[in-house]
Computed example of a mutant assay.
Amino acid sequence: MSISMHDIATKCGVSAMTVSRSLNPAHHHLVNEQTRHKIMAFCERHNYGPNYSARTLAVRKTFSIGLIQPWVQQIGASHTYGLMLKYFVDELRTYDYTISLLPLNTDSPDSVDREVVKAIRTGRVDGFISLTGFIGKTALDEMSKRKFAIVTFNMPSDPVQEIDDFRHVRIDSRPAVATLFEHLHQLGHDRIAFAGYSNSCLQRLNLYREFLPNESDLLLVPSDRKSIDKSLLHGYKLVFDMWPRLKKYTAVTCINDAFAIGLCQGLKDKGMIPGKDIAVAGFDDLESGETSAFLTTVHPPLKKAAKKCIESLMSQIRAKQIASNTATTVDAKLIIRESTADSARG
């Protein structure tokens, strides 16, 4: 037998308005915490939830945010993209919102504009998070005209279009990478290499270039966007394919943690001890077992960045206007672990 909001109010000894506020993330702060927990526990026991269709019609909101991300395959293949999506979903859940992946075609930049404009005009979403630089003038004009909420965000390895007049959240990895090189120099390392890809994650590659004296210190393999398993393999193979060059260095910084973990395994198979015979550092702070717990790495604060993105979107949606052109920066930080700690050079 189904129950109504009035039934819940009667059973909990409160008004129907109090029940309504408790179930609405935008208003539940108006209800005493103990009362709210009592109501939520009762609803959970009886599998009761608000009627989203009715609420959508009543307030003229979809309670959905569109994710503009042309590389949808990356979400399944990349740990970082998958984790960022999880954090977006978690943050949106606190506002009772969901996320909608727009069906974009990277081979046709115009399709990005068409899908974004269609989503706005059909009322499919209440706002956008953009992880791409492919938004064109047509879509931007439509957003501006309708005062549509949007925030752009750059993944730690990819450049993104910072759109004039809109809000932007970025992760600044440069201070953490500078600290990494300072850490290695303090340990006595003066022969430092970078291992990674020649034609993907170019923003990260160019960042490391700033701290290396010679282009010859870049140990690069060609690759497009790959999964974690491929990065592990590429890191492992690089040890054997480039050993005459690699063995000259006392420290190696890597494009990501998976690449670094593969490289560490290759070094072990060469009879080297990572962290003692050669320092190794990664990027992403990937949580994947014992090896990652050993790895010095750059930690991009994805969860904090996701929170900033969603807070910006919700404030725009509540105010029914686009935020001014401002950028919020969150800094990455260096996590020092065993893979560099015991590798000092005298």
Rank of each mutant, 00 (worst) to 15 (best):
G76C: 10
E91G: 07
S53P: 06
S64N: 03
Y95V: 03
I68T: 01
K86H: 14
Y97W: 12
Y48A: 09
H79V: 03
L92Y: 03
G49R: 11
I99S: 04
Y95E: 03
R60C: 07
R55T: 12
Y87R: 02
H46A: 11
L85C: 05
V59Q: 00
Y87T: 05
Q73V: 13
W71K: 06
R55H: 09
S100I: 09
T62R: 09
Q69L: 08
L92K: 01
G76I: 10
T62C: 10
A58T: 14
E91V: 07
D90H: 06
H79P: 07
S53V: 13
I68H: 03
T98M: 07
V72N: 10
Y97D: 02
G49L: 12
Q73Y: 11
R93P: 05
T56Q: 08
E91H: 14
A58N: 12
Y81F: 11
Q69F: 12
T94A: 08
P50T: 04
I68W: 05
A58P: 11
Y87W: 10
R93K: 11
P70W: 03
T98W: 09
G49H: 14
L57G: 12
Y97L: 08
S78D: 01
T80Y: 01
I68A: 00
P70F: 08
S53C: 08
N51Q: 02
P70A: 05
H46K: 11
R93S: 15
T80C: 06
T94P: 09
L85D: 01
Q73C: 11
T94W: 11
S53K: 11
A54C: 11
Y87V: 10
G76M: 12
H79S: 03
F63A: 05
T98Q: 10
G49N: 13
H46F: 14
Y52W: 14
F63I: 06
K61V: 11
N51E: 07
R60D: 12
G49F: 12
P50L: 08
H79F: 09
P50K: 06
